[in-house]
Design a binder for these strands. Structure first.
Lengths: 129, 129
DNA sequence: CTTTTTGCAAAACCTTTGCACAACC
DNA sequence: GGTTGTGCAAAGGTTTTGCAAAAAG
C-alpha cells in the first residue's frame, strides 16, 4: 500500500505539470515515450489514475469521450471550443453560492458542489470562419 | 433524407419519455427488448442519436463515461449522486448571467453557454451511511 | 527479500458502422 | 419500386486488468 518511487511516474507527473493544455492519456503517452521508449499506455493510465487519486492531478471530463488531465488541482472553470476542442482555464472565481441556491428546495439529497464548463468558439476558430 | 416511421423508434422514444431517470442506451435496450425481442443495440443507439439530433431528446454527459438520455429538452440542471449515480432534475433556473460574467475579461474566444451538473449524496445514500 | 511498478497483451466497455434484408410510403 | 430502417456482427476508440519480470526499498 506504500508508494514507491518510479521514474516513469515522475516523468508523467512532470509532463502534465509542464503543460497547461489539459492533455489526454494518449498525448502524455506520446510525449513521455521520448524519454521512455518502452513505456506502455497501461502504465500511463495507471499513473494518471494514481496521481489523480492522491490529488496531484485532476481528471477532467468535458463530454468529448476522452479524459483530460490537469496539473492545477485548485477548483477552476474551463472553456472548451466546440469546434476544435481546445481547452482553456478560466480566471473566473468558483460560484460557491450557486450550490446553496440549488440546494434550496431540493429534496433529493445534499449538494456538495458543481462541475461546469463553458463552451463556445475559440479565438482561432472565430478567425477562420 | 426523409424520416420514415418505425415502430422501434417510436418504442424507444416512448420509453425515454416515460422515464424521468435519464436512462442510458443499455437501459433503453433492455426495456424496449420486452416489446421487440429482436431489436439490436445498434438500432437503439442509432435512434437515440437521431432523436437527439432532431431535438426530441437530449443527450446528457455527466462524467461517468456513459451517455444518458433525457426526454426533457428544455435546458435544466441535473443532480448526480457521487455514490450511486442516480440523476435528478433540478428545479433551478438556468444562470444565463454567468455566461456573460465568465466572458468578461476572457480573451480566448467567445462563450456561448455552459454545462453544469451538481453533485453530492442522494437521500437514500445519506440514510445508509 | 518483500512489495510495488512495469511492459505486454488481452479484455472490457461503450459506441459506431457496413451490409443484406425488411419495413415504410 | 425507391428509400429509409433494422438486425447482425464486426470494428473502433478509450480505459482497465492479469501476469511474469523488473525495480525499489
Amino acid at each position: 500500500m506504500t508508494l514507491k518511487y518510479s521514474r516513469q511516474r515522475e516523468a508523467i507527473r512532470e509532463f502534465v505539470m509542464s503543460r497547461h493544455d489539459h492533455p489526454t492519456a494518449d498525448v502524455v503517452y506520446m510525449n513521455v515515450r521520448r524519454e521512455f521508449p518502452n513505456i506502455s499506455l497501461g502504465t500511463v493510465y495507471r499513473n494518471l489514475t494514481l496521481l489523480a487519486d492522491i490529488g496531484q492531478l485532476t481528471r477532467i471530463r468535458l463530454g468529448d469521450g476522452v479524459d483530460h488531465f490537469d496539473a492545477i488541482t485548485e477548483p477552476h472553470y474551463h472553456f472548451v471550443c466546440k469546434e476544435c476542442g481546445v481547452v482553456y482555464d478560466l480566471d473566473f472565481p468558483i460560484l460557491d453560492t450557486v450550490d446553496s441556491e440549488a440546494d434550496t428546495g431540493f429534496e433529493g439529497g445534499r449538494i456538495d458542489g458543481h462541475i461546469t464548463y463553458f463552451y463556445g468558439k475559440c479565438k482561432d476558430c472565430l478567425a477562420e470562419g
